[in-house]
Amino acid sequence: MSQEIAVIGSPDFTTGFRLAGVRKFENVPDDEKDERLDEAVQTVARDEGVGIVVMHADDLDHLSRDPRRVVETSVEPTFVTLGGDAGSSGLREQIKRAIGIDLMEED
C-alpha cells in the first residue's frame, strides 16, 4: 500500500511541504510549467510508493489532456489540489472520489 506524500509545483509551493517532512517532490518553476508539468505528473503517478500527490489548483490549467485526466480520476495515488478556485467543494469531491463515499452527506 502506498504511504508517501508527494508534492508537485513551483519551488515556492513545494518548500513548505518539504520543511514539513515531505521527501518526494517535483519542482517545476513557473516559467517552465507548460513544458515540464505533464512529465512531473506522469513521473509521480507512476511511483508506487506515493499515495497522495499535492498540487496547486491553478497548475491544472498548464496540463495537457492526458495528465489532467490522471489528476482528475486517479484513485491511487490520489491527487489533491489546493488553492485557486477549487475551494472546499473541490476538496470534498476529491475525498469522495478517493474513498468512495461522501463524508459530508446530509440525511
Rank of each mutant, 00 (worst) to 15 (best):
I52P: 02
R69V: 13
T78H: 03
A57H: 09
V41A: 03
H62C: 06
V80H: 04
D85S: 15
D34E: 15
V71D: 00
R46W: 10
G84R: 03
L63T: 00
E72C: 02
D58R: 10
V75H: 11
D34V: 12
T73G: 07
L91Y: 06
G49A: 06
D47E: 14
S74M: 08
V75N: 10
G84P: 04
D61C: 08
G49D: 12
R69L: 11
E39W: 13
E35A: 14
S89H: 09
R68Y: 05
H62M: 09
P77E: 01
L82Q: 06
Q42N: 11
D66A: 10
R92I: 05
V80Y: 02
D34L: 12
D61G: 09
G84E: 05
I52H: 07
L82I: 13
R36C: 12
L82D: 12
D59F: 03
G87M: 13
V70C: 02
D47R: 10
A45Y: 06
D34G: 09
E48P: 09
D47Q: 07
L37C: 03
G87Q: 08
T78W: 07
V80E: 04
S64H: 08
V53A: 05
G83F: 05
V41M: 06
T81E: 03
L37D: 01
D61N: 11
E35N: 13
V80N: 01
L91Q: 05
R36T: 04
R36H: 15
S74L: 10
G84C: 14
F79Y: 01
S74D: 03
D66W: 06
L63N: 00
G87L: 07
L63R: 01
A57N: 15
V71N: 00
L63Y: 00
V71T: 02
D47W: 05
T73W: 03
D47F: 06
G90C: 05
L60V: 10
E76S: 14
L91T: 06
L82P: 04
E72Y: 05
A45E: 12
V71F: 01
D34T: 13
A45N: 09
S64P: 00
P67N: 05
V75Y: 09
V53H: 01
D47S: 13
L91E: 02
V53D: 02
E35W: 13
A86E: 12
L60C: 07
G83A: 09
T73R: 13
R46T: 15
S74Q: 07
V41P: 00
D58H: 06
V41W: 00
S74G: 13
D61E: 15
T43L: 14
E76V: 12
A45H: 11
E48Q: 12
E35K: 15
L37V: 10
L91N: 02
L91H: 03
V70N: 02
R65W: 05
I52D: 06
R69F: 14
V50W: 03
R36L: 13
V75W: 07
R36Q: 10
E48K: 10
D47L: 08
R36E: 14
P77N: 06
S89G: 09
D85I: 10
V41T: 00
V71Q: 00
T78K: 01
G83E: 08
A45P: 10
V80D: 01
M55N: 02
M55I: 09
F79S: 00
G49Q: 09
V50D: 03
L37M: 09
R46P: 04
E76Q: 08
E93N: 15
G51E: 02
G84M: 10
R46I: 04
G83H: 05
L91K: 04
T81Q: 04
D34P: 08
Q42T: 15
E39I: 13
